[in-house]
Design a protein around this nucleic acid. Sequence first.
DNA 1: CAGGGGGTTAGACAAAGTCTAGTTCCCATT
DNA 2: AATGGGAACTAGACTTTGTCTAACCCCCTG
Lengths: 146, 146
Amino acid sequence: MSRGPENLRLLPREQALEMLEQHGIAPTEQRTEIARLLFGRHQHLSAEQILAQLSTSSARVSKATVYNTLNLFAETGLVREVVIDSTKRFYDSNPDPHHHLFHTDTGRLEDVAPARVQIGELPGLPASMEVLGVDVVIRVGPRRDS
Amino acid sequence: MSRGPENLRLLPREQALEMLEQHGIAPTEQRTEIARLLFGRHQHLSAEQILAQLSTSSARVSKATVYNTLNLFAETGLVREVVIDSTKRFYDSNPDPHHHLFHTDTGRLEDVAPARVQIGELPGLPASMEVLGVDVVIRVGPRRDS
DNA sequence: CAGGGGGTTAGACAAAGTCTAGTTCCCATT
DNA sequence: AATGGGAACTAGACTTTGTCTAACCCCCTG
């Protein structure tokens, strides 16, 4: 299930700091490093993967901080939390609205253009409620001709 | 987070047996009881809730059996496994295609008619792959006028 | 009656994430 | 420069959800 570093890229520190500031997040060293890693490319990382990646790099970040930071990022809308398998959360660094294709055989998550999915109106939703998000996950796997 | 029994209903034993048979599942006592509970109404139950419910009733079923049975039901398509909150799986007794509305404040899951969501074609999917399912979850919560 | 296999059980175990208490760091005030 | 306070970080204990294992039971068949 684990894959290689698959050409790791880090966002320049300056851009990471800018992102944090735009979302009103105090730019600590750890948060900056996590942001640099996560936003280095469009990808879907789990807390576990981030933790592993960081612990091999120069930066030293504790498990609690990784979880705290990812939750903070998710709350402020900096990243999107995607839940597929109940045993894993992914954090999606693609800020644009889109949906997901999940490969059940490899565990890989792939982006899908939002144009392919149309959501109609939702009548009957009280005015006090608002739609926080729409998650579409298309699960695909090897054909198993029953 | 836990709610009362909310007018529990059991499916007649006869119908439960019929469902199991149609899906090629050997009808043991425990499986029948789980099916009666789950299919007594359209609902979304977690393994935890089923376990709790059964342990108060006459039937005595172990944790392992509840999990084994739910996984078996899911594999054979008898129930649909729905993952929203990453800390819990729900088992959906509604066999018709539909989507879900998730209330982030109460943790309640609600059905949404499938007509409201249109999924386009998915080009680029290899012939060896097939779509196993499409899960649409609309998360709603109290308005938080930013 | 012996053997075998599926099903069930209790409890040990594993994985993911949360919590807690203590520490460090930064900054403002004196 | 010293002091005090608050936010953030850390290690590790803990919790929760689900899986695994070994023993057992029951029924069926030979």
